[in-house]
Amino acid sequence: MDLAWVRQHVRQAAGRIGFGLVDQTKLVTAASELARNTLVHGGGGQMDSTELRTGATRGLRLVFSDRGPGIPDIERALGDGYTSGGGLGLGLGGARRLVHEFSVDSTPGEGTAVTVICWTTGPPPPGREST
């Protein structure tokens, strides 16, 4: 995956969906950090993006996945002040604060998948998400 392509794709998709400039920037920043983690720590991988809609609310789901070494301690990796060095200085915890929904699925030795979702007007009520 190419980091410049990820940033461009996410910005274009977020603009097309109706995100304002500030929310586009937050999502692009989170995506850039997650893509970089996928490349540097996971040895490369992929990003899948899906446009979501529930009523008038639109969103974007991004899934960053790799087959790298995994994250042995997810809680520690999500903590403030944790860094592996060389990134935007956000880490997983910073990326998590920039989006509405965030989840990490990681198995040491098998890889990691990080899913983020941003909504145009905040998250919809539980159980209302559709694609």
Rank of each mutant, 00 (worst) to 15 (best):
L92R: 07
G91P: 05
I117G: 09
R128T: 15
L92M: 12
G89Y: 06
L60P: 02
Q24Y: 11
S84R: 13
T121L: 01
A13I: 00
S84W: 05
G127M: 06
W119D: 09
L78S: 12
G59K: 04
T50F: 13
S106M: 13
R61E: 15
A113L: 07
V116W: 10
S49W: 08
E51S: 10
A56K: 11
S32D: 15
G87W: 04
M1A: 13
G44W: 09
G86M: 09
A4H: 09
L52A: 04
V104C: 02
F19V: 00
S103W: 00
V28Y: 06
D80H: 07
A30W: 02
G89V: 00
V10M: 01
V104T: 01
G44H: 10
T120H: 04
W5I: 02
G127C: 12
G127D: 14
W5R: 11
C118Y: 00
D66A: 11
L88K: 06
T107N: 11
H9A: 14
D2F: 05
G70K: 01
T25I: 06
T29L: 11
T120A: 09
R96D: 02
G93N: 09
R96P: 08
L62M: 04
S106K: 08
H41F: 10
C118R: 13
R67A: 15
D80S: 07
I17P: 07
G91R: 03
R16M: 05
D66V: 04
G93V: 01
G45T: 05
N37P: 00
T121Y: 10
I17D: 12
S32R: 12
A95N: 03
G81N: 09
A4P: 01
V63C: 07
T83M: 03
S130H: 10
G111P: 01
T29H: 09
R76F: 04
T57A: 14
A113Y: 11
P72A: 15
G127Y: 11
P125F: 08
E101M: 05
S106E: 15
L78A: 12
G18V: 00
L39Y: 14
G70W: 04
L39M: 07
K26M: 11
E110M: 08
G18A: 01
E101A: 00
S103K: 09
R96N: 07
R76N: 05
T115S: 14
P72R: 15
D48T: 10
P69E: 14
R67H: 14
R11S: 10
Q12D: 15
A31Q: 12
